[in-house]
Structure formats: C-alpha cells, structure tokens
Computed example of a mutant assay.
Amino acid sequence: MSNSFGNIDNIPSRDLPKKPGVYLLHDKKTGWIYVGGTKNIRSRISVHRSLLHRKKHTNNQLQKAYDKGELFVYVLVVLPSTETKTRIEEIEGYFIKAIPTLFAIDSINLRCND
C-alpha cells in the first residue's frame, strides 16, 4: 500500500487528500481492520480522530485500538472529485471483500456505508 500514512494521531490533516476515496483503519495489535469510503478523506479521518480523542466513537474496536495507540490509517485509493456516493460505496465494497485475501485475516467491518 503505497499511500500508507501511519498512526492516526501522527498524520497532519493537511497531508490527507480532500478528495473521495477509500481508507483503512487498522488495529496493529489485533489485526482488526475497518474499511471506509467517503466523499472527502481528510474530513472523514478528522471526524474519526475527533470522536476517538473524545472517547465518543461508536465503534468499540476502533476506540480500543486508539486508546492503546495502535490505530493506523492507510489511504487505499483516491478517486476523482466527480465520483458519486454510490460508486464510492461500490469501490469500498470491493476492498472489503478483498481485505481477507490481502491481509489473511477474518476481522473486518461488514458495514459498507461511511
């Protein structure tokens, strides 16, 4: 993954694209993975970070990984600004299906909307 960034707290927002795309949040300790698709990667990661920092994230797996300093972010694909929400969700779904093969794990979110 050439667009990997690292620990969610160490990524300056300015380094994240303001474009649509698919990203991955990875618990380095347990191997658990969350895949999300969004119209604005920078904004969405900022929302995740804010909720996690305030201990208000609705995803307990992500919150636990963050609290232990083990949550890492990877931008999997940046899409054209004209991409539709439906198309972003479709691409996100492809990544969700491919992750168990790519990472040889079963721990992944099954939700396809972000």
Rank of each mutant, 00 (worst) to 15 (best):
S2C: 03
S2V: 09
N3W: 10
G6M: 10
N7V: 05
N7M: 09
N7E: 14
I8Q: 08
I8K: 07
I8S: 09
I8H: 10
D9G: 02
N10M: 05
I11R: 03
I11M: 07
I11P: 02
I11D: 05
S13K: 13
R14E: 13
R14M: 04
D15K: 10
P17I: 04
P17H: 07
K19Q: 12
K19G: 00
P20R: 00
P20D: 03
V22G: 05
V22W: 00
Y23Q: 06
L24P: 01
L25I: 04
L25W: 06
D27Y: 01
K29N: 08
K29E: 14
K29C: 04
I33V: 13
I33N: 08
V35S: 03
V35G: 05
V35T: 08
G36C: 07
T38D: 06
K39D: 10
I41V: 14
R42C: 12
R42M: 11
S43V: 01
S43T: 01
R44C: 10
S46K: 10
V47C: 04
H48M: 06
H48E: 04
R49C: 01
S50Y: 12
S50F: 10
S50G: 12
L51T: 03
L52H: 04
H53V: 08
H53S: 14
H53Q: 15
H53W: 11
H53Y: 10
R54K: 14
K56P: 03
K56V: 00
H57P: 09
T58W: 10
N60K: 12
N60I: 08
Q61G: 01
Q61F: 10
Q61R: 12
Q61V: 11
L62T: 03
Q63L: 13
K64R: 15
K64N: 11
K64P: 02
K64A: 13
A65M: 03
A65F: 02
Y66T: 00
D67A: 12
K68T: 00
K68A: 14
K68W: 08
G69H: 13
G69K: 11
L71Q: 06
F72R: 02
F72N: 04
V73C: 12
Y74A: 09
Y74H: 09
Y74N: 14
V75W: 07
L76F: 08
V77C: 01
V77P: 01
V78E: 15
V78D: 04
L79A: 09
L79W: 07
L79M: 15
P80R: 11
P80D: 15
P80E: 15
S81I: 06
T82L: 12
E83I: 06
E83N: 04
E83S: 13
T84H: 11
K85E: 15
K85R: 14
T86F: 07
T86W: 06
R87I: 06
R87N: 14
R87L: 06
I88Q: 08
I88P: 12
E89W: 08
E89Q: 15
E89S: 09
E90C: 06
I91N: 07
I91E: 01
G93D: 11
G93V: 02
F95A: 00
F95M: 08
A98L: 15
A98R: 13
I99Y: 09
I99F: 08
P100S: 03
P100N: 04
L102R: 10
L102S: 05
L102V: 12
F103W: 09
A104E: 14
D106N: 12
S107Y: 02
I108M: 08
I108D: 01
R111G: 10
R111E: 07
R111V: 08
C112M: 03
N113E: 11
N113R: 15
D114P: 03
